[in-house]
Amino acid sequence: MTTVRMVPGRAAAAGKAGAQDVSAVAAVVQRLAVLLEAGIAPPRAWALLAESGEETAAAIVAAPPGADTGDLLAARGGAWAEVAVAWRVAATVGAPLAPSLRRFADALREAQETRDDVAVALADPAATARLVGWLPLVAIGLGFVLGFDVLTTLTQPAGIACALAGLGLMFVARRWSRRLVARAQPAPGLPGVQGDTVAIALSGGVSVDRALEVVQASGGGDTEPETGDVLDLSERAGAPAADLLRATSSDARRRARTEGRLGAARLGARLLLPMGLCTLPAFLLLGVGPMLLSVLAGSGSLLPLAGPPGALP
């Protein structure tokens, strides 16, 4: 077998997959697979889906005669671009379309479940960081409620210094927290999808080299390292490459789910740093500091805060 070129990266359209409801796409593909298994021709199957109000199916039905279905799917963007790759591969190698689409729909659904689990795990620490970030400003309102002359205090030199320092720390805390949350987000794209696409090509009875060539020509991107390793293992062991690829893709999605949950757990601990080093000092500077200065000014300890020199408190 020709040496597999292992270059990281996916097709550019795969990066948009997270912006679309992949589960909805998977449901449409699943229904299409069922119609095809029932013996309905692809054009009629798309027409039936269009009659039920499916927008992508309606766009395909409304396309000029002879338009390539793969191109029409790719134009929809998001997860449909991944479906377009699978469709083109199956059509090129002559793989059974219905079972290929059914397995691919399961892969899309599993990948979206992984992203959903990670998003749910990240929701709590991210929301906590946003809420805590506003506490310093809440402290100012608390000073007004308790009857302190916070506004006057904040217009004096010492109060202005507290306000500027507190607002600066709030800004740093928010930027720091956002960066931590962004780094904990799952990578764009759907994990393990390329392996499932190569498996579709192999199910058409073509060689490994031909399968990789078709996948790349169909928009599936360069061969990922994990896909290349599985194909090399299959060649050495004499095991079915398609089954190994599907198993490895499923493992990749489970691994992404586990790593996402671990990342969310680590995020909760890491967010304590901006909270402790920035938000808490900002709370003291914007809340406790002005109230303390107000008390001192009212007691005559800081006459410049209360009025001009010589004025009685």
Rank of each mutant, 00 (worst) to 15 (best):
D229V: 09
G39Q: 00
G147N: 13
T248V: 06
R115D: 15
G300F: 02
R253L: 08
D222Y: 02
W80D: 03
T69K: 02
T69Q: 06
S299Y: 10
A90R: 01
G147R: 09
G300P: 08
S234V: 00
R179F: 00
P8S: 07
W134M: 13
D21Y: 13
P186D: 04
A13N: 03
T2M: 06
Q112Y: 12
L302I: 14
P64C: 00
L142K: 10
A74G: 14
A127K: 14
A57S: 11
D68I: 05
R115K: 14
L135Y: 13
A90F: 02
D243L: 15
T56Y: 00
A67C: 00
A19Y: 07
A256P: 10
V61C: 04
A119Q: 10
V198A: 11
S203T: 13
I160L: 13
A105Q: 07
A182V: 09
S234H: 01
D232C: 02
G78H: 04
E259Y: 00
I140T: 12
A24N: 06
T258M: 08
W87A: 02
P304E: 05
L72M: 14
P191M: 06
T2L: 12
L131A: 15
A173V: 11
V25M: 04
F144Y: 11
A241H: 07
A282D: 00
P99E: 12
P308Y: 12
T279H: 07
A239S: 14
A17W: 05
R5G: 12
T92V: 06
A47W: 06
G310D: 08
P157F: 02
G94I: 02
A45C: 10
R246T: 14
R130L: 13
P65G: 13
G39F: 03
L271C: 02
A187N: 04
A119T: 14
K16F: 15
V61D: 04
V28F: 08
W176H: 13
S203P: 04
A12G: 10
A47C: 03
G166E: 07
L73M: 15
